[in-house]
Amino acid sequence: MKATLNKKENILRASLELFAERGFDGTTVPMIADRAEVGAGTIYRYFENKEALVNVLFQDCVAGLSDSIRGGYPEEGTVRDQFRHVFYGMVRFASDNIQALHFLDTHSGARFLNADSRDRFDELMGFLHAYARSGQQQGVIRPLPAHALIGIVFGAFTKIFTLIRSGILEETPVLLAGIEESCWSAVRQPAE
């Protein structure tokens, strides 16, 4: 049983690496098989096709990001406390698997995502939209569309972690605190 789990885990790991590096269309089942060190036929024992595989992977990544962001969320905290929690939840997720962050960033609107994948992603976005609306109602968050606010923070965040991954930046607590403060400044309602 353990060898079976390892094969499936190896297939998912290899798929994530390749989809993050090459995208869905640039990745073939034989490439995944080579990277996972299994026969191509083995992949089809676990997944009906490449689309089924990418959807399982996408749902796993969304669940991981959601768990990182929502776990321990300070419901009764200030809008600022909640923002800090979400930011450092993204840090935990990215630090554990930068490829999953890149994969979600590049595949979240993909044509091949099935209804379950879209629903799970929409649920996570709904949580973030509710946060933005609440902050706007309290006069703390800028009155921009939630998608724009999320794009400002998530776009900057993914770029910073790409620079960390490539070795251009070193991930330190001081750097992360500065980035978190900068992202907060970008979405908070300025004091008048």
Rank of each mutant, 00 (worst) to 15 (best):
I69R: 04
D105S: 14
K8D: 08
F112A: 12
R142L: 13
K8N: 10
D60H: 04
Q82S: 00
V91T: 05
E37A: 14
A186G: 09
L144G: 05
L113V: 09
V91Y: 03
L163F: 00
P74D: 00
R188Q: 13
Y88S: 02
E51W: 03
Y46P: 03
Q137V: 06
Y73L: 04
P74A: 00
T158I: 14
R35Q: 06
L53Q: 01
V86P: 00
L149A: 09
G39I: 07
N114F: 08
F83G: 01
P30I: 08
Y44I: 07
F154R: 12
G41H: 08
G109A: 08
E51I: 10
E171S: 00
V56N: 13
G89T: 04
T106R: 12
I164L: 06
L12P: 06
A191R: 14
E170Y: 01
E9N: 15
R92C: 02
L101D: 05
S15T: 10
L169I: 08
D60L: 10
I160S: 05
S108W: 14
G64Y: 05
G126M: 08
R120Y: 09
F157K: 04
E75I: 03
G155F: 03
P30F: 07
A33D: 06
V187T: 01
I43K: 04
G151D: 11
I32G: 07
K2M: 09
S108N: 13
I160M: 12
G135N: 07
Q59C: 15
L104W: 02
V56Q: 15
L163N: 00
Q99R: 12
C183P: 06
